[in-house]
């Protein structure tokens, strides 16, 4: 497997949504819908394209995304835009943004400023960007063992080795982090599915 490509979720805003089967720009990404409680990327709210921009009623579920590139978000066709059953606001991520990140040894690393997502098929949230108390930026991997309260996000000791200062390095660290998680779950046969479910549901 190649190294996971990752990007800040906030950088997706403004990208056109282009259909692979049609070659049309059917929408534009407005905002990221993120479930902070479960550390899960839900999807994207959309704007119309063109001069008369305005909010589109439809949303794009993360599961319908084929790829997020530097120049466009690719979907198969325009049926991938869905009317949300329960309209999700744009402020879902506030459950984690601003929280203090506390390491297992009791250090306060800083505050969460953003979400990092993968850019391939079915993108998912893999980390948080942290504005460090020492003035540096950190990227912290999301794991099932994190504990979240109203003010704090406690990260497990197993994740501390995979904290990085740069996004590119973080992409590689995420892969290594997953290998560690997968190895940890190996002793129990048939636990791989539960593990992946556990990871998204925290």
């Amino acid at each position: 497997m190649t190294t996971s490509r990752v990007m800040r979720a906030s950088e997706v805003s403004g990208l056109p949504v282009v259909t692979i089967n049609g070659g049309d720009d059917v929408a534009e990404i407005k905002d990221v819908v993120f479930d902070g409680t479960n550390h899960r990327l839900v999807g994207f709210t959309l704007n119309k394209r063109g001069w008369f921009r305005g909010k589109l009623r439809q949303q794009l579920p993360a599961s319908s995304v084929v790829a997020i590139g530097p120049d466009a978000v690719m979907v198969a066709d325009d049926s991938d835009l869905e009317d949300p059953k329960v309209p999700l606001g744009d402020g879902e991520s506030h459950a984690v943004l601003g929280n203090s990140v506390i390491s297992a040894d009791g250090s306060d690393l800083g505050n969460i400023t953003g979400v990092v997502i993968t850019t391939g098929k079915d993108p998912e949230a893999v980390g948080y960007e942290v504005d460090g108390n020492d003035g540096n930026s950190y990227f912290v991997p999301i794991s099932a063992q994190m504990a979240l309260s109203d003010n704090n996000l406690l990260i497990p000791e197993s994740s501390t080795d995979f904290i990085r200062n740069d996004l590119v390095g973080f992409g590689a660290a995420i892969d290594d982090h997953r290998k560690v998680l997968d190895t940890a779950s190996k002793p129990q046969p048939g636990a791989s599915e539960a593990e992946s479910l556990g990871r998204t549901q925290a």
Binding site: P16, I20, D24, D25
Partner: peptide, 10 residues
């Protein structure tokens, strides 16, 4: 080639 549309050739 996958498609030719109003925005691009995919």
């Amino acid at each position: 080639i996958r498609s030719l549309g109003t925005y691009a050739a995919v």
